Simulated assay, not measured.
Amino acid sequence: MSTALLLLPDLLLIVCGFLVCRYTALDRSVWSAAEKLVYHLLFPALLFGAIVRNPLSLGESAALGGGALALTALGVATSLGLGRLPGVEARLHASGAQTAFRFNSYVALALAERLAGGAGVAGVALLVALCVPLCNVAAVWPLARHSQQAFGRELLRNPLILSTVAGLLCNLAGLRLPEVLGTTLQRIGSAALPIGLMAVGAGLQLGGLNASPRLAAAFLGIRHALLPLAGLGLALLLPLSPTQRTVLVMFSALPTASSCYVLAVRMGGHGPFVAGLVTVSTALGMVSLPLWTALAGRLAG
């Protein structure tokens, strides 16, 4: 299966959610409840399980982890910096900024396994553990500030942040879940992606990006051009193994996280705008990921 086809099911799930919400009895009232389920249970279980299942080796992967953190910091700084430009609407910026630096961890894990086997999955697990907490903190901050919610309180009760920090602490402490509990958690988490992506489609308004086309283009440009270029440069500069180069470039070019939409809606953001960004980012990823991973393959060779 090509990299483009790996992302096609995600895009089709968004389309499916759009059609089901508008042309069946499963209307917005159903999907509002589904968004709460994804936000409070399914995505936290996915993130916690992905981190705990794959042992981390910080010493052997310091350069890889540092490169990923640098890329994430670049995405956070540039996307949040857009809010200082004249004419940028505060609610749209607070809602959409996260799409420029958050990433689809499910696609990352699946693609890493296909490109680099177990070593690739272990590398992505490290990046998930290091970068997801930073991404979630940076995503919550502008939304909390815009909605005049207490930032510290939002961090302490945000299920995505709590689950990733808990997973990281358990992993570093060497704790492993009993098989029956791990399997149960994995099955709960496996429902996160399909329901989350269908919720994106259910919330999609085809004109959502018309609220601010230039801002949307800037966010997508950071996610699909600036960060991959920076990732390619870091892969050349850092002392990485061939597998680590592939993982870092792939990480830099991932489409944005589908949970961006759920987080924006649950915190009073502009749902249709974020749903449009997630949809377009997923579609762009079908084109950009094969190109960037091919370049990474040449570097690794």
Rank of each mutant, 00 (worst) to 15 (best):
A70G: 10
A4V: 02
P178T: 12
V165Y: 06
L229Q: 15
G123L: 04
P44I: 03
L175M: 09
W141C: 09
R84V: 01
G65R: 03
F251D: 07
G196N: 05
E35W: 06
F151P: 13
R187E: 12
L168S: 11
F251W: 08
A283T: 04
R223M: 12
R298D: 06
V262D: 00
V249S: 04
E113I: 02
I188W: 01
T183H: 12
P239A: 10
L71S: 06
G49W: 04
V30H: 13
A144Y: 13
V180E: 15
G66D: 07
T256M: 09
L80T: 07
R266A: 14
Y261N: 11
L12N: 07
G59W: 08
L134M: 11
I195F: 04
P55G: 03
A225Q: 10
L169P: 11
A73I: 13
H40C: 12
L209E: 01
S212A: 14
V165Q: 07
G17A: 09
A97H: 08
P142K: 10
L111H: 03
D10I: 05
T246H: 00
T246C: 09
Q244S: 02
F48P: 14
L177S: 11
N136G: 14
V20I: 09
R214V: 11
G83A: 09
A108Y: 05
S259G: 10
V262N: 00
C131S: 13
A199M: 05
L295T: 08
S2T: 15
H270D: 15
L47M: 11
P213I: 07
D27E: 15
L197K: 05
V15F: 07
C21F: 06
V140T: 12
L69K: 03
L204R: 05
N210C: 08
A218P: 00
A191R: 01
G66E: 12
L181V: 14
S57F: 12
A253S: 14
